[in-house]
Design a protein around this nucleic acid. Structure first.
Length: 499
RNA sequence: GGAGGCGUAGCUCAGCGGUAGAGCAACGGACUUUUAAUCCGUAGGUCGUGGGUUCGAGCCCCACCGCCUUCACCA
């Protein structure tokens, strides 16, 4: 008999014992239970018959027996981490099950409990002699049997693979996982309320695209059988949202999943959540103001400081964020002006990269990535980097009187690109030309210039001048919750299937 | 895709050429306010998979699988 069978046999046997007693090991509707976190906030009385009556439900995470009394630790998702009067950290509320109080059936239930079972309790709430908050059980209700042994109550779950493949256990036994997930929900909720307060409306656009446009990324491909056409999973939300601008929806956003068929890393999951929004008659300055306000609102919604820890440093999100132009940063870190063609080529050659047949703006950006981004990583405040080389931004309007500069910014925090915004290009003639002109030196999948005839046709009907913004929600959550890997802000990150 | 590291009981981990170990969990027993309860007893393993070296392999070598880290690509 193997170990697993042994565990299961023991639990199966208890299950059958419950059934023989006429008890349902899989539970029934159990109305009106109070969250354990709320029970813990009830006032304590030391007069036994004045204790408040409570009904509770939760997961059995520890069990101690002392003669004719069991102590069972109950967990639910509202339990805070607290320090008890013995100075110990606790993440559960204990239930005292005394043989004289719960009757024969209750005692049978207590005898057949396993760690991981779900238990309903009716009783009174008070303290033991040692001052530990306790539900003194009067009636027990079996809510669900766990047939599978749960992780060690003290060692917890250490193995990353085990945690990811058993996220449901990770939520229970690794406190930060639930905490971060709830923070993510708060952040997303605050983004929605912030935008709704300002008159933006949320829409849903297609995930299946005939042309994967709006970003530079390799798409996933799929196939529709009835139409017999290949389709792509979207890599961006942009082109549909802009069609909605043409349609008169002046302030529009979508928070949605996008899919990029690229490598996986602590900062990259194949599917991730993007916020994109567009505002008619705005520009990238409008977006800068909005971005700053929205991020600060999210931080405030988490209820803490505006100076947040991240890894071994801190980030000071106190507004206003710093603003630096791309050309100025380039000059500072590379020592050359971005227009200085000879200087840029020389600087690239020094690094040992080829410059042959590669567009000037692409070279500039290679230098930016190598020289400027490391500098940005050293900053402990968010910084808006704005006014990008036009060649990098085929969907962006040029700065007035400066045809080589695009009205675009990226918000860098610790070197991470958190937000990306533009004054959107609404000139269909320029747009079509940009689509047709493949940037020299870039493979097709790296170029944002993918021809979408239908999109150009939409522009020809007149898209208002507009500001547009994109924010990677996962990375925002990482920064605001001090999380170093994207897999810990996504409940179910992609894993290779077992076996 | 490249380079490193890791994979031993349900969980957390020791063991690194010579009889497979501990804590928690489990099973049997004692104990009516415990606090990682304690005490007595019991059981639990194809050491990721497959080859090889060796008198002898969790341990050394090779391949494969999975995860982690890092680089490349990208957000």
């Amino acid at each position: 008999m193997t170990e697993a069978q042994n565990f299961e046999a023991s639990r199966q046997e208890k299950l059958h014992r419950l059934e023989q007693l006429g008890l349902d090991p899989w539970g029934q509707r159990f109305d009106g239970h109070m969250p354990l976190g709320e029970i813990l906030r009830l006032p304590i009385t030391h007069v036994e018959d004045q204790r408040p009556k409570v009904r509770a439900a939760g997961r059995v995470v520890a069990r101690r027996k002392q003669g004719k009394i069991y102590f069972v630790d109950l967990w639910d998702w509202t339990i805070p981490t607290r320090v008890n009067k013995q100075g110990q950290e606790r993440r559960a509320l204990q239930v005292a099950i005394s043989q004289k109080d719960v009757g024969e059936t209750g005692w049978h239930i207590a005898d057949n409990l396993d760690l991981g079972d779900l238990l309903g309790v009716d009783g009174s709430y008070g303290e033991t002699r040692r001052g530990e908050p306790t539900i003194f059980a009067e009636k027990l209700t079996y809510l669900t049997k766990s047939l599978q042994p749960h992780p060690d109550k003290w060692g917890g779950m250490q193995d990353m693979e085990f945690r990811l493949r058993h996220r449901y256990l990770d939520l229970i036994y690794t406190p930060e996982v639930l905490e971060r997930s709830l923070k993510r929900i708060k952040i997303v909720r605050r983004i929605r309320s912030y935008l709704e307060e300002r008159g933006y409306v949320e829409v849903e656009t297609p995930t299946l695209h005939a042309i994967a446009g709006g970003a530079a990324a390799r798409p996933f491909t799929t196939h529709h059988n009835a139409l017999d056409i290949d389709l792509y999973l979207r890599i961006a939300l942009e082109l549909h949202l802009k069609r909605l601008l043409v349609g008169g929806i002046e302030k529009v956003y979508e928070i949605g999943r996008v899919f990029r068929n690229e490598g996986i890393s602590p900062k990259h999951n194949p599917e991730f959540t993007m916020l994109e929004l567009y505002q008619a008659y705005g520009n990238y300055e409008t977006m800068m103001e909005l971005t700053e306000g929205m991020i600060v609102a999210c931080i405030d919604a988490l209820g803490g400081e505006r100076i947040l820890p991240y890894a071994d440093r801190t980030i000071d999100f106190t507004p206003p964020f710093d603003r630096r132009t791309y050309p100025a940063l380039f000059q500072q870190c590379v020592g050359t002006a971005i227009e200085d063609r000879a200087g840029v080529v020389a600087a690239v050659n020094v690094i040992g990269l080829t410059t042959h047949n590669i567009d000037h703006d692409v070279l500039v950006h290679k230098l930016f990535e190598i020289k400027v981004e490391p500098y940005l990583e050293t900053l402990d405040r968010p910084v808006f980097v704005h006014d990008y080389p036009a060649g990098l931004c085929p969907l962006t309007k040029r700065k007035a009187g400066m045809p080589h500069i695009a009205e675009r910014f990226e918000l860098y925090v610790h070197g991470m690109e958190l937000a990306n915004a533009y004054t959107e290009l609404n000139d269909p003639v320029t747009q079509e030309a940009t689509f047709r002109q493949q940037l020299a030196g870039l493979p097709e999948e790296e170029s944002m210039a993918k021809m979408d005839e239908d999109f150009v046709r939409a522009l020809r009907h007149g898209m208002p001048p507009a500001g547009g913004l994109g924010i990677g929600i996962d990375r925002l959550v990482m920064l605001l919750t001090n999380t170093q890997t994207i897999r810990d802000v996504i409940l179910f990150p992609l894993l290779r299937p077992e076996k």
